[in-house]
Structure formats: C-alpha cells, structure tokens
Nucleic acid binder design. Structure first.
Lengths: 232, 232
DNA sequence: GCTCTGAATTTTGAATTCAAAATACAGTAT
DNA sequence: ATACTGTATTTTGAATTCAAAATTCAGAGC
C-alpha cells in the first residue's frame, strides 16, 4: 500500500535537545527495547532477523548491531549461529535484581539527603503532587510515567553517574518483569503512600529515614512483582 | 612482505574449553578490552577502524560490532559519524564507581555470611593462603591475578547472579583506573591484611563484620586509586 | 599573513553479497 | 512405522560495496 514511503526519517525522533542525528542502530535498538519491554516480542521467542528487518525496513547490519546492544542489556540472548531469542523472565533473577536494587536505592537515599538542593526538592515535590493528581483521577498510564520520571530524577539528583546508569539499566529488566507479572493494582495506593514518606524524609533531609524509605519502597515493589510472577 | 598470508585463523583462539566457536566479534571484543585495560590504547585516543581492522585482520563488520559492545561497557565512546575513542579515566567517575562498589561489596558480604558452604569457605581460605605465598615471594603478577580470582569467587559464592554481573562490569573500569593510576605498592601488604580480616569474618560467619570488612577493603582500595589518579 | 570557500580525500554508516552453518525435508533401509 | 542419511533450503556470519558525512588541503579574497 504505502510502498512509496522509502523515505526514512530517523531524525524525527531526535527531537531538538542533543542536536545530533541518531544512528540507525540506535533507533532500531530503542524500538526493539520497547517491543521486548511491552511483551510485543514474547519471552523465549526466537527472533527472525529477516522478519524484523522487513518490519523496520532496514538492512541486517543495523539490526544486528542493535541486537548486540540489547544482548548487553540482557533483554535478548545471542545463540551462536542460531540467531537471537528474547530472554525469559526468570523469577530467580528478578529476585536477585531487587536484592541489588534495594541497596542501590538505599545508597541513593543517603546521597540525596546530603546533596539535593532546595530547588530540586521543590521540583520533586511538585512532580509528586502532580502524580497524586493522576492517582486521584485514576489516570493509570500518566501515573506510571510520572512515577518512572520521579525515580529517574531521584537517581539523577543523587549526583552519582554510575549509580544513575546502573539504576537505569536494572530498571529496564524490572519494567519487563512488571509487565510479565501483570502487576495488580492493589499496590497502587500503597505505593503512593510510600512515595509520600520518601518525599517527607527528603524534605527533612533525614539521611537514615530517607534511605530506609527508599529501601522499603523498593523491597515492597519487589515483593509485589515476585508475587505476581509466582501467580502466573 | 607477507602478503601471501590471506589465511585467517580465528579458530586458533577458540581453544577447546567451551566447545562452541566464538563469533569473530567476541574475539575482537576481548582483544580490544585487554588493549584498553592495559593502556595499549591510550585514553582519549581516537580509534581508526581501518588500522584496527588491519592489525586484527578482520573486516570492519565484526570490529564495529565489537566496538558497540565495548561502548556498552563504557570502555570506548562512539561519536556519531566520527568513529570511536577510548574513554578518558575521569577521577570523578572513578569516585562514583567506588561509592557504588562499596555498597555492592557490603551486600556481597551479607549474602556470603549466610550462603557460603563450609567447602566454599575452605576453598577461599586455600586461595587466600596461596595468595599470601605469592606475597611473601613478592610475585606481583601472580598475586594480582589470584587476588582478582578471589574477588570474583566471592561474588560467585554470594549466589546473586545480578550482583556478580555488576561487580564484573564495574571491575573492568576499576582495573583500568588502577592501571591509569599506576598503583603504588604501598598498599600491597595492607591489602593482604584486609583480606585476612575478610576471611576470618567469613569463617566466623559474622554477617556484620564480613560486610564491614569487605566495605572497608573496597573503600581503601578506592582511596588509594583516587590518590594515585590525583598524583598524575 | 590570515580566514574563508570549496573541491579532493578519507572515514564512517548502511546495504548488499558471498560463504558457512543450521534447519527442513525427502527418500531409503530396517 | 520409525530412524537414519544425504540433499535442498533457509538463516546466520562476515566481507565487500556503495553512499553520505567529515576531514584535509589548496587557492581565492580580504
């Protein structure tokens, strides 16, 4: 039907911020990442290079480069001479993941209490309030997106680049586990309350309380996800 | 001179152990990794694809795939349309790195105290004693290698796969920072003593003491590396 | 002399091609 | 009918080719 559309528009995604064109493999990787995270590519399923190339309308070269990136992120597995498959969500690994994340969050908390500026705390508070609005209006996707943004912002403000990278990387897998577990809504309001605790501890700049609150929040999230996974 | 040598011998490196052929890009990645770690490729230096292709005797495809892997590991930076360069060792980032590593080690300690079997503890003790032998004989490279193996084994035995992966990944950068800092030997015996503390706490299965000892060891290592970096 | 412009060259990005491995499949023997 | 062998097909791995971007460099203009 639309086979006139040979025009690729990778710059469409570039926005305006970084002012640089993305390589094709980066675009493909981002797409793939989303497909894996949202379960569009089922865990365990083999990935046919040809099929994906056709659907993305790119050659195999950038696709294979993208697969290598995803493999490093742990979202796909590369089998030698037999292509790639989407990694399974292994509850055991997810448990390990949260075990680590809990500690990273605690570290983040300690750093935040020391390093966050008043302006940054106000910014987080504003985001938090907006998130509560979405909660009250039961706007689930908006709530979820903002929730993610807040967590990311917390990691950023903690001022440790390595920590930010690790949390981002691990969060990929967590997001995937969430989808796979089909997170029940029960924790929605519980989670909102935990966020309130975090914000309050941060505003008091209470080191230990903040670390504990963040640790606690992550631990409970983990428990909920694992429960969801077990109940499949 | 030797332009008769069109024969590539990638299988020469495959050895016999894993019983599966490594892809070319994996071999290249491993070589590159070593070159970066040992400072053979200087931090900040631009990487010419052509030159490297010639020296490895492979085409650009596997080399570029390998570069993508290294980029994910943070050893090289990919500049759009301008190739790759070896990432600089940024003391600020190294500090962040250790800040995180210290917590990961503490977690590792807690897990080890609970999960290590008697046999595994004995194994670690044996490795430790052997390392002390190398220390007494002043066999530096052997000491260093065994040191690395012990740390890796500790991570393995802690039984958290994600933790093992992270420590392995971060350890890459730490190793590089060490080389860059030209680690002075002063800490050699101090480090051996710290290891003794770790072993003893593990043998007592003293949760807190072990976590503290491992945290402490990593913190001091970090301080030494950072000092070395500052003194360049 | 210095800077700017614009071709020539080099280098990178991505598609295509070629070769090797794996898979699917048909036919034979048991 | 089932298991096995050898061949055809498909799919992956890696080299090559083609196009686009960056770099270099020469010469014109100030």
């Amino acid at each position: 039907m639309d086979d006139t559309a040979d025009v690729k528009a990778p710059e469409a995604l570039a926005g305006s911020a970084p002012l640089r064109r993305l390589s094709l493999y980066e675009v493909v990787a981002e797409q793939l990442r989303e497909m894996v995270l949202e379960g569009e590519l089922m865990p365990g399923s083999r990935i046919s290079e040809k099929r994906l190339c056709e659907s993305f309308e790119v050659s195999r070269t950038p696709l294979r480069e993208a697969l290598k990136v995803l493999a490093n992120e742990g979202l796909v597995e590369l089998l030698p001479n037999r292509g790639a498959k989407v990694t399974e969500v292994d509850p055991r690994e997810v448990a390990d993941l949260f075990e680590v994340m809990v500690e990273l969050e605690a570290l983040s908390g300690h750093l935040l209490a020391r390093r966050a500026s008043d302006a940054e705390i106000a910014e987080l508070r504003a985001m938090h309030q907006q998130m509560l609005d979405h909660y009250r209006r039961q706007e689930r996707p908006e709530y979820f997106r903002l929730n993610q943004r807040i967590h990311r912002r917390l990691a950023e403000i903690s001022g440790n680049g390595v920590l930010l990278e690790l949390e981002t990387a691990l969060n990929l897998k967590i997001t995937r586990a969430r989808y796979a577990a089909n997170m029940k809504l029960g924790r929605w309001d519980e989670s909102a309350r935990e966020h309130e605790c975090i914000l309050e501890a941060l505003e008091r700049r209470d080191d230990e309380a903040l670390a504990d609150a963040m640790r606690d929040h992550m631990r409970k999230t983990g428990d909920a996800v694992l429960e969801g996974l077990a109940a499949r």
